[in-house]
Design a binder for these strands. Structure first.
Lengths: 190, 190
DNA sequence: GTCTATAATAAGATAGAC
DNA sequence: GTCTATCTTATTATAGAC
């Protein structure tokens, strides 16, 4: 990726996060890059292409991150803890991109939309399998696998909504709180 | 509220939910109502006025709902359970409005934005006070009150993202799952 | 690879007739 | 209370010079 292409991407992430995809114009982006709006089209075919490339890259990195974090163990509880922490960390470290990836899917063409939704489904399935396995092995209480997976994922994802990098708690501290909260919730339904 | 004013509101909720506020035009709304776009302005001063009135009404109803549900008990755990169920039920019953209320704040003028954010803060404070009180009384484990309150609220709120009214589980079943999950998470950090 | 210029279209909102 | 007509402005995107 060329220098200007990366700049356009990064400026777009800032603006899409702050104002939203539809409220951000190509002019806004060009302004932020210090170039003319026509120049954007040398690097990206369209505004939608720019959005898609951000979302696709983010989802791929997110999935890679999860796979790496699971490789270290084969114990269900430890894997769930690792998965939760990986998910939280990624969402807080790359707050703006993940926020966009969760809120701007409606800006995509239907083919691109399908691709991102599929990537997300595959990612979710990892968590669903862990909940299922934990339930069967008696490590977690029996429960509705899908609802619980959505609960866990959206819980951590939501962190990206309010997280402030210079705030009171570090990313690892927040990840630890979520980890404890979720494992307790999974182990027994009160 | 006149019949047409209510129709405009309801059509807008549908469209803002499906396409987003910025992606929805006054023409789209007028189309959905079977009137001309100029006629919208007889009922609402601007597109932003329409958004604000939806968000304000939704937040007020949400707060009323919570207050009613808390009146029945003065036991911390029971109150938290009631609060969680109230929150979940409202978000699933009025899925589209609450989704908009959580995703379209950027469409508001800064004065209107301030008003909605303040309403939300007051709402959150009820949950924070319950977590605090539960911690002091030893009903819940000690924990970070703010992080936990965000966790609980966004967890339930997120339900509005994926919930399908004709899906496998009823609203009360989902509320019960969340209730159990959250109380377990609050009682002990694993 | 970036520029100026412009096309083509759609937006939010208003004026004034009925 | 709704209409037609219109204003003003902004939008995405393209053409073609440099």
């Amino acid at each position: 990726m060329s220098h200007m292409k990366a700049t356009i991407r990064s400026v777009s992430v800032e603006l899409f996060f702050k104002k939203g995809y539809f409220a951000t114009s190509i002019s806004d982006i060009a302004n932020g890059c210090g170039i003319q709006k026509a120049s954007i089209y040398h690097h990206y075919a369209s505004k939608e292409d720019l959005l898609f490339s951000i979302l696709k890259g983010t989802m791929d990195d997110l999935t890679d991150c999860l796979k790496t974090s699971l490789a270290g163990s084969d114990d269900v509880e430890q894997q769930m803890r690792a998965a939760v922490r990986s998910h939280v960390r990624f969402h807080l470290e790359r707050q703006k991109e993940t926020f966009i990836a969760n809120s701007e899917l409606r800006g995509l063409t239907s083919e691109h939309h399908k691709i991102i939704v599929q990537k997300r489904s595959e990612y979710e399935r990892v968590f669903q399998n862990l909940i299922q396995e934990g339930g069967e092995k008696g490590v977690f209480a029996e429960g509705d696998v899908k609802i619980l997976s959505y609960a866990i994922l959206t819980l951590c994802t939501a962190g990206a909504t309010w997280f402030k990098p210079d705030g009171r708690l570090s990313i690892d501290e927040i990840a630890a709180i979520y980890d404890g909260f979720i494992i307790s919730g999974l182990k027994q339904s009160a």
